[in-house]
């Protein structure tokens, strides 16, 4: 755990830098708010409707695909760590990889076949 002390230290420095920039920028700048200045930027016209309008469902689709594929991809990491050492035991982890990749590829094939990538 001792290795993580410098990381916490770095986190402290980063928080100090980020918050001091925020405070300085607020403190040093002039404050002359105008209704027009504070309106949402919409290329010169008045903004219509809610800024949080419903958005395209393709983003939702990407999120679902990410959840599936990234969880699968995360399982490669422990495999990679022990693979080099396991070679002395024969090809057992290679066989495991081939089986796992087959499942992975099946999922990816399904995504492509279902036309999930036509994200226009």
């Amino acid at each position: 755990m001792e290795n993580y002390i410098p990381v916490l230290l770095l986190l402290g420095f980063a928080i100090i830098v980020a918050s001091s920039i925020l405070v300085l920028s607020w403190w040093l700048g002039p404050k002359k708010p105008l209704a027009v200045k504070l309106s949402a930027y919409e290329c010169g016209v008045n903004a219509e409707g809610s800024p949080h309008a419903p958005f395209a469902s393709k983003f939702y689709l990407v999120a679902v695909m990410f959840l599936l594929v990234d969880v699968e991809a995360a399982f490669f990491f422990p495999w990679a760590l022990v693979y080099k050492e396991s070679l002395q035991l024969g090809p057992i982890l290679f066989v495991a990889l081939v089986i796992y990749v087959a499942i992975f590829a099946l999922g990816l094939f399904y995504i492509i076949k279902k036309d999930c990538l036509r994200l226009r």
Binding site: L24, S25, G29, K31, A35, S39, A40
Partner: peptide, 12 residues
Amino acid sequence: KFIFKEDPIPTG
């Protein structure tokens, strides 16, 4: 220049 500029927060 950045640091001496106004720091507006939009109404929305």
